[in-house]
């Protein structure tokens, strides 16, 4: 299994595959992850153009210091195979799959990616997967989805389609997605992958965004998807770790290093065993601190 490098996922900003100027500008904001979109923001008649534009922009003009994601079209759409051909060859950090509902869908996409990696001479397994959970079936099967492939590093909740699947009303308070948020989070924690919260859609309501992100952070999410640059700094500010969290992360990593030095198979801290997800979370905590300007 491929060793995964920890990376910040506080904010992931969607950038439409139709617009070169938006792609160029997005590289200058403070989002951790850029999501080049082939799906909802691209009209049907422009899917071919978006594929080529995203491919060349990432290959030739990749923004430095960003985790690069490509969101492809739906698993059962007529576009998925060609989207994957372009997306894999662009060599992003991850591919984001919309509306995943079953583990076997992840396996199917994983196999297709592997075949393209082989053909294109790209290291097998190097491209990670984010699975969008956007329906009640996705929520019910979240753990199986999160653990369906070693490529899966994150689940991202999509609230608009989820509420539609529930026949619920989408509200700013978000009571209708409270269970889904928790269910997806628990699945992520059990599978050892990161949990990314849903978009707050009203880009003009920054107070509403703060209230929503307070809940995002308090529930335990690792980050949030954003749809407008003005949301980025607000969301990032919620993911600045406390002094206590930083200290604990440092102790975890010190214990891991000590374990390596002594050639120990299992490492413990305060009587509990340190597993790989704990180690990755400790790296992330310190990366969040550094991104917020804290000297660690």
């Amino acid at each position: 299994m491929m060793e995964r490098k920890p990376s910040l996922k506080r904010t992931s900003l969607y950038v439409s595959g139709t617009s070169p100027v938006n792609m160029i500008q997005a590289g200058f904001y403070n989002e951790d992850c850029m999501v080049f979109d082939m799906e909802d923001s691209v009209p049907l008649a422009e899917k071919d153009a978006a594929r080529l534009l995203i491919y060349h922009m990432i290959r030739d003009h990749r923004p430095a210091g960003k985790y690069i994601i490509i969101r492809v079209n739906g698993i059962y759409s007529e576009y998925i195979d060609e989207d994957l051909e372009a997306a894999v060859r662009a060599k992003p950090d991850a591919i984001r799959i919309p509306k995943v509902e079953y583990a076997n869908e992840v396996k199917m996409i994983d196999e297709k990616i592997t075949a393209i990696e082989k053909e294109a001479g790209i290291e097998e397994g190097s491209i990670e997967l984010w699975c969008n959970i956007e329906s009640y079936l996705g929520v019910l099967n979240a753990y199986e989805i999160a653990s369906a492939s070693p490529r899966v590093v994150a689940l991202a909740l999509g609230a608009e389609d989820f509420t539609a699947s529930m026949k619920a009303q989408r509200t700013k308070g978000g009571q209708e997605i409270f269970y889904a948020r928790n269910a997806v989070l628990m699945a992520c924690r059990k599978a050892g992958v990161e949990a990314v919260d849903a978009v707050f859609s009203d880009i003009n309501d920054l107070e509403g965004l703060k209230a929503d992100t307070t809940l995002t952070k308090n529930l335990g999410f690792d980050g949030k998807t954003v749809v407008h640059p003005r949301q980025i700094d607000v969301v990032n500010s919620f993911f600045t770790p406390s002094a206590k969290e930083i200290k604990y992360a440092q102790r975890v990593l010190e214990a891991v290093e000590e374990g390596k030095r002594l050639k120990k198979g299992a490492v413990t801290l305060d009587g509990g065993m340190i597993d790989k997800p704990m180690e990755l979370r400790a790296y992330t905590t310190l990366a969040q601190a550094r991104a917020a300007g804290i000297n660690v």
């Binding site: 070169p20 153009a49 003009h61």
Partner: peptide, 22 residues
């Protein structure tokens, strides 16, 4: 446009003129 955008747009226009996929 950046060179990579010009390339992408030329390839798309060529595919459309020929009626083929990339």
């Amino acid at each position: 446009a950046l060179d990579c955008v010009i390339r992408a747009r030329c390839e798309t226009a060529a595919c459309r003129a020929l009626g083929v996929g990339f």
